[in-house]
């Protein structure tokens, strides 16, 4: 089970990012536990200032803007 966290305060891009990851995981039958982190203190504790950010198994892989599909897939495959 891959632990995925989307860091974001609820802006449109954060929701898009979350949906995108869910879709891609679904398409490729990758099991993930997706959590949305909205608490500012927690987001900042990852050292991320630009949202949305993506954390995979505790490691920040992305910050700022919607990630593209290929990158998401490679994060999930490598995790």
């Amino acid at each position: 089970m891959i632990e995925v966290k989307v860091l974001g305060t609820g802006c449109a891009s954060c929701k898009t990012t979350q949906a995108l990851i869910e879709n891609i995981a679904g398409e490729h039958d990758i099991e993930i536990a997706l959590e949305k982190v909205e608490d500012m203190a927690k987001i900042m504790s990852y050292g991320v200032m630009s949202t949305p950010g993506v954390v995979i198994n505790g490691k920040v892989v992305h910050a700022g803007g919607i990630p593209d599909k290929k990158s998401i897939l490679s994060w999930l495959n490598e995790a």
Binding site: A41, S45, Y46, G47, V48, V60, V61, A63, K70, S71
Partner: peptide, 22 residues
Amino acid sequence: KIQMGEVQAIEQDNSLPARHRY
């Protein structure tokens, strides 16, 4: 009161196709 974590270096794919996709 917020304690910010260490800013982590994010690995970036800097190849041309990746840049184009971005």
